[in-house]
Design a protein around this nucleic acid. Sequence first.
RNA 1: GGCCGUGUAGCUCAGUGGGAGAGCCCCAGUCUUACACACUGGUUGUCGUAGGUUCAAAUCCUACCGCGGUCACCA
Length: 882
Amino acid sequence: MKAVELEKTYNPAAFEDRIYKQWVEDGNFRPADGNGTPFTVVMPPPNVTGILHMGHALNNSLQDIIVRYQRMTGRPTLWVPGTDHAGIATQNVVERQLAREGLRRQDLGREKFLERTWQVKEHHHSIITEQLRKIGASCDWEHERFTLDEGLSKAVREVFVTLYERGLVYRGMYLVNYCPHCGTALADDEVEHQEDAGHLWEVNYPFADGSGNITVATTRPETMFGDVAVAVNPDDERYKAIVGKMVKLPLTDREIPIIADSFVGIEFGTGMVKITPAHDPNDWECGKRHNLTPINILNPDGTLNDVCPQQFRGLPAEEARFKVADELKAQGYLKGVKDYNHEVGHCYRCHTTVEPYMSEQWFVKMKPLAEKALKAWRDGEIRFYPRRWENTYSSWLENIRDWCISRQLWWGHRIPVWYCGDCGEMIVSRTDVTVCPKCGKSHLHQDPDVLDTWFSSWLWPFSTLGWPQQTADLERFFPTSTLVTGYDIIFFWVSRMIMAALEFTGKVPFHDIYITGLVRDKLGRKMSKSLGNGIDPLTVVENYGADAMKFTLCYLAAQGQDVLIDMDSFKMGSRFANKIWNATRFILMNLEGRNLVEVKPENMTDMDKWIFHSMNECARKVSTSLESYRFNDGAQAVYDFFWNDFCDWYVEAAKVSLYSDDDAEKDRIVSLLLQLLETSMRIMHPFLSFLTEEIYSRLPNTEGKVICAKFPGYREDLVFTEQAALVGTMQEIVRGVRNAKVQLGIDAARKLRITVRPESEQLKSFLEDHSKLLSTFLNAESLIIDATASSDVTSAFPVAGQGYESFVFVRDAIDVDKEIKRLEDELVKTRALLAGSEKKLSNPQFMEHAKPEAIEKEQSKKAEFEEKIQKAMSHIETLKSF
RNA sequence: GGCCGUGUAGCUCAGUGGGAGAGCCCCAGUCUUACACACUGGUUGUCGUAGGUUCAAAUCCUACCGCGGUCACCA
């Protein structure tokens, strides 16, 4: 056979791009034909606001691993990629760009602004897709979608109109969360509460009849111009008498009533609350209960409007706060002020303080949708990994609130509602409307607002497959199989997808939900731009290769755990990839002049059987790990098998054959090595995709690509438990001798005479069969296997183990005193263990309750300790006689 | 404040009822004709604290402490 050499060093950059291109050209990411149960994953669409970070790399690496694994089991597999238009976020990016040019979006106008936003989208989209290619994502690009593309826009309109028809979408004037910076309403979930340092001002409101005053406490004095009442608790004895009286609102001419409402805490502050329905959610509810008309005091940009006194108009709320306080003080209304920390809502996109703001918005009535989603979960149709996220899911759904879906933005799905300028008719329509169906006139204007981004992404699992049309894809690939995503969007996205799918397709959108951890730095901090602790996935790929990145992330992705990494973490995967490369290189180097032969089980040594057994177990572990989303277990299984078993023992053992003069044996071992290598590549392909593909193409015993190859199933005929145990014992013997030599301070290179005394016939014949191998591993000058060898051989150092004893002839090269000391230390330890064991066995409770196996084990342990003590004592004697 | 998670070797973490593990780090030795991104051997632990259940607890239960997350309208 011709030798096919591998380049001397593992250099992923030399082949990763080429291989990816080839996969795409050959259509390897397309779902296979055939009628196996399809496996489908939809990629959580990254926002087109930026480029992929480490979190995306983790997420997509894990998806890639299960997708490749499932593809190799023969299921038609589809991984749908795509991107999200990310309304607020993308619009913010473009507005920031404009600001640098001294422009506002209004200067461009809606159309020009959108053109520009599309350019930004295209730019980021091309970077993102390039990144996904670089990391090796085996998604089907022919199925790529964008949340704002034509098909998905149709789906959005269909859903909006249908929900409207079902009475689940409504419009109304409500107090919503409003971000003055983004200029739009936000959903409740889009508000992040964080504690801010503020003040609690105590303000005197005089009675209208001049009979003194009351004191209210507030964190926001500037909203007083919107006050419509002052509330006290009806059970508050202090204030019972004044309920119904009028007070004069300072700095204004208005008078407002004192009302009683049980939401007021008697203990807090002064027990009196100013009621400002237009600017506080509690007050809004309170105002409704008491039929009070809200007074809005803010402009949409967060500045005080014309309702307020002249001097405060146009000031931002926060600035006005202190000005109002100053004025109150100047006029003698301010009783006191305290520092006070309290929770304040912030925009999740720009972190500006959110204002409760009264405006007309569109909402989705969520309760009916949530009930279906809860039922599907209770019926076991969906399952979270790890399970605990199900609590998060269910408690959110149980306490769900209506969803504000209109956004005062330009970038997004325009709300499909038109208003007639002549007759005032409102038309909700799946298609564009140009003529009013009521009055026949054409003075129509479409609602200027767009829909919340999540209103398109909640349809992702079915809209990407063609819904609302009943396409072949939808028929075949929906419901999808698994969703892989982060816990930060369980509410935003996961729950809503389940609700939408149930409402519109009657099915759950996916069955398994794997929730990944967050990627953090080694100090446990989130990676962020502001901290500058982020790691760019592309830099990792450049430094270590995509396989090293994927393998490392997988190895660290324990279910339910965050992944803490720094750049050096990826050395782990890199070293492993390098090891695989070099092992392959070694095997390929030994092909020159060899013939491949078929090695039947009867021609296999116990060593051969052991490695096949181990590989078989490895394949099984990978299968069970990946099917239960225990990614780290899978990665560890291939790492341990390939490095510890295959390289460290089997390939080392094979050298005995390779360096012999026996051509038949050489052919045999090379054939086995290639066979093992071929199967290993298939087992490892999901984790190290580029490397295994490259190696697969170089092996003389392969056809086609590993990406399309069959994942090795578990084979009963490769179970060799006895052989595995024998090899295990041999490894122990070897380690024992090596260890003894080091402890005795003997140079590893020094060859010594060694005798091994096996205690069973089976072990004896195994060792005899592998005596040359054992001798090599032991680096022995000579090796004798003798079942009758005795422990009192003068000048031999004994090493005992389960079922055997080794004697190392060390007299010439040891420090006797040091060794005696070591043995005596060991004696102390062993005696302690024996004492523990004896205590257990003499405990009647233990003897009565413990499982028979446990007792048996304890007894054999005790015997072992006793034997060990005997031996140690006799060794000490032996050494003392030297 | 509620709920959830977490606390195991110097670091990052596996392990979840029967003799404490991996990788990195560290120490000693080895450039042994695939790999120094390697090989060989070694050190390191009141398994957060205190109780409890059990013949047996890192593992199950309770409380507490630390850290993290998440939800919550207290002006």
